[in-house]
Design a protein around this nucleic acid. Structure first.
Lengths: 218, 218
DNA sequence: CGGGATCCCCCGAGATACTG
DNA sequence: CAGTATCTCGGGGGATCCCG
């Protein structure tokens, strides 16, 4: 790669110069869930070489997708956040997520679910499902990752972490993906222990309708 | 890249394993405009090493995105085409194109417009513009690339090549991009020679309304 | 001539250690 | 915590060659 260019005057080649590099898509995805510290990113990107993350963040900063902000205060931590231009990539990232999820079945050996992937996965699922009816607050645990889901006036907001007092707390493993595909009904999911519930169990039907990630037809 | 995996159980990492490799996005984009021979792909991807194209096509075939078909007949040519799974990537590719086009201004030194980029660019522009009113047939020339645009019942179809007898033939250079952004009005485009017209010049207003590729706000 | 395969070189990616 | 420094290794770039 003498340089990362493609010598074509077109939008896709410009996009490819950014997202067509190793780790870029996942770095950007992690930043779509909110500003992140360097160590947050390292933790959320298992296996990334630290020097490569450093390089990528500089490239993103140079391209105007990311801003590096040194927090002044007790902790002088460094936080990376997306600019408007970076945020504008979200529809494309979500389209790619939806496509890639189509072939997601059994996890491969050693694969984990990160917090950013859970949050963005639920965001994508909300976009592909029907508009939710009842307002509610959910907390979803998959592996070590936790997401906080707010449903209000038919709008869905997903943020990382556990911010307490949900109407329903869901604890699941990788087979939660089969549930989101509709391959496992809410009743089956409970009966087979795919999901553990704490709270108003009837809300699980709402989740099944409003959060959908279909399998690729094949 | 020990392997191309990311050790995350999520759709985006699966997509990144395919799309996050050099040249992959452009290869897939070229195939979205229709089945292509090896030499067509080489011609449409300036600078791609032939061995790398060969490798990528095998990967895509192995991933089920591409089928390699040996045409039986007078010419035993080999044709590569997208499977349904490959075609399902088109919305994501178009979203990336639209995003990348946001910062397209002056062409860089040595950049060209390929046929696939013109066709897919117009396809993306049709998706972002308003629904066209009058039925019409256009032929668009930009550089050496030619696209054939059919507007019928508000639906737009764009195919490569010149299939004759258009209602309007448009010949333009890279500044056609400014026209698609709305930065240059149809009148200005004609007055400044950005577009050359042959046929029903009043149809240029229809094009301006129906084909839009906005600039990134910055 | 279309459709590749083979070669070498070099840069980018991975891993680890270390530092402000 | 937030990177930088250094090393190794494999994949990409580029040219050339090959085969039906």
């Amino acid at each position: 790669m003498a340089n990362r260019e493609y010598h074509q005057y077109c939008g896709l080649s410009r996009a490819a110069e950014v997202v067509g590099q190793r780790w870029m898509l996942l770095i950007l995805r992690d930043l779509t869930v909110g500003p992140r510290r360097y160590s947050d990113l390292v933790a959320g990107l298992p296996g990334i070489p630290t020097n490569l993350l450093s390089t990528r963040l500089k490239e993103l900063e140079g391209d105007g997708l990311v801003v590096r902000e040194v927090r002044r205060g007790a902790d002088r931590s460094v936080v990376y956040g997306l600019t408007a231009r970076g945020l504008a990539l979200m529809p494309a990232l979500d389209a790619l997520s939806l496509w890639g999820a189509g072939e997601l079945r059994e996890p491969r050996e050693g694969e984990i679910v990160t917090e950013a992937s859970l949050v963005s996965g639920l965001r994508v699922a909300a976009g592909a499902g029907s508009r939710p009816g009842r307002d509610a607050v959910f907390v979803v645990h998959v592996g070590d990752a936790t997401a906080h889901v707010l449903v209000r006036d038919g709008e869905v907001t997903v943020v990382p972490g556990d911010h307490g007092s949900p109407d329903l707390r869901i604890t699941a493993g990788p087979r939660f993906r089969d549930f989101l595909a509709g391959a496992v009904s809410p009743q089956e999911a409970v009966a087979e222990g795919i999901v553990g519930l704490e709270g108003d169990a009837s809300l699980l039907d709402d989740i099944a309708a409003a959060f959908v990630v279909p399998y690729a037809d094949s």
